[in-house]
């Protein structure tokens, strides 16, 4: 499974006075098993891009190949695309609606037309994969759970569809530090267990540096730069010019004169110890 986006353009309200280009000639590739981080400030076109990847928005021009199938071509079944590509929206807990957690998680698999046994199995698997105890939460109303648990349930609802590509739009927005960590850990866990492609949008540069194999930077609908976290976060000036920042730890190390692009706390500790020894 791989994703290949070529010269993707999207124009909102085409032909109207309010016409606005939301995506301009976006091209990138994602290989099997990668975690990709997409960063860009608010209104840069990230969400628009994500919605193209599972066919919720139609491209004005360009192609999106997912597993060799160009989903921008007419006649491609949307159900097939959504089977392959799961999208978790921002604040996904606001889409919970069922009377029990198990039923809510089952909504997606049910729409895929699976058998009862398959659905039940997937629901159990997904709920435990996001770190919840099936026996404890399955029959409870999703509305009486805590904020972090609600989000976990909402993510489980998409994970239960077993998408080969899992896209998450700011999965940690508005969470407290502990839940924030839990959710990231859960995404990693799902990624490792299922071997999917994970695409992650975040405003938190630290998260991206820690999680991603590849980083894509978007500004006003254009792809600014792309590469490994090492490559992208070595371009501090460029990131600042598009309203983004370096991860705090990278910034800190730059400030105290470590010129390598340091991305994690452990790495930083090592470098600082070296510096002191000198």
């Amino acid at each position: 499974m791989s994703i290949k986006v070529t010269k993707l353009n999207h124009i909102y309200d085409k032909g109207m006075p309010t016409e606005q280009a939301a995506l301009v000639d976006i091209s990138f590739e994602v290989n099997d098993g990668e975690i990709v981080g997409i960063i860009g400030h608010t209104g840069s076109g990230k969400s628009t891009l994500l919605q193209h990847l599972n066919g919720l928005l139609k491209a004005t021009s360009g192609s999106i190949e997912i597993g060799g199938v160009d989903i921008t071509q007419p006649g491609v079944s949307m159900v097939d695309i959504r089977k392959k590509v799961g999208l978790v929206f921002q604040y996904p807990e606001y889409q919970l609606f069922e009377v029990s957690v198990a039923k809510d998680v089952a909504y997606g698999p049910k729409n895929l037309g699976l058998t009862e046994e398959e659905i039940d199995e997937r629901v159990r698997e997904a709920i435990s994969l996001v770190g919840l105890d099936y026996d404890k939460v399955a029959d409870r109303s999703p509305f009486e759970l805590s904020g972090g648990q609600k989000r976990a349930v909402a993510i489980a609802g998409v994970v239960a569809m077993k998408p080969e590509v899992l896209i998450l739009d700011e999965p940690t927005a508005g969470l407290d530090p502990k839940t924030h960590k839990d959710v990231l850990g859960m995404i990693k866990e799902v990624h490792e267990r299922t071997g999917n492609i994970t695409i992650l949008v975040s405003h938190n540069m630290g998260d991206i540096a820690e999680m991603a194999d590849k980083v894509i930077v978007i500004d006003s609908g254009k792809l600014v730069t792309m590469g490994t976290p090492q490559e992208v976060f070595s371009k501090g000036e460029l990131l600042k010019s598009v309203g983004l920042d370096l991860p705090p730890i990278t910034e800190f190390c730059n400030e105290i004169g470590i010129n390598d692009t340091v991305l994690s706390l452990d790495e930083a500790v090592g470098k600082i110890v070296d510096l002191i020894k000198e």
Binding site: Q51, L87, Q95, N111
Partner: peptide, 13 residues
Amino acid sequence: DKIMKAQQARGAD
């Protein structure tokens, strides 16, 4: 609009 899209992403028709 947002909720409809989110449910569509979960296979709603």
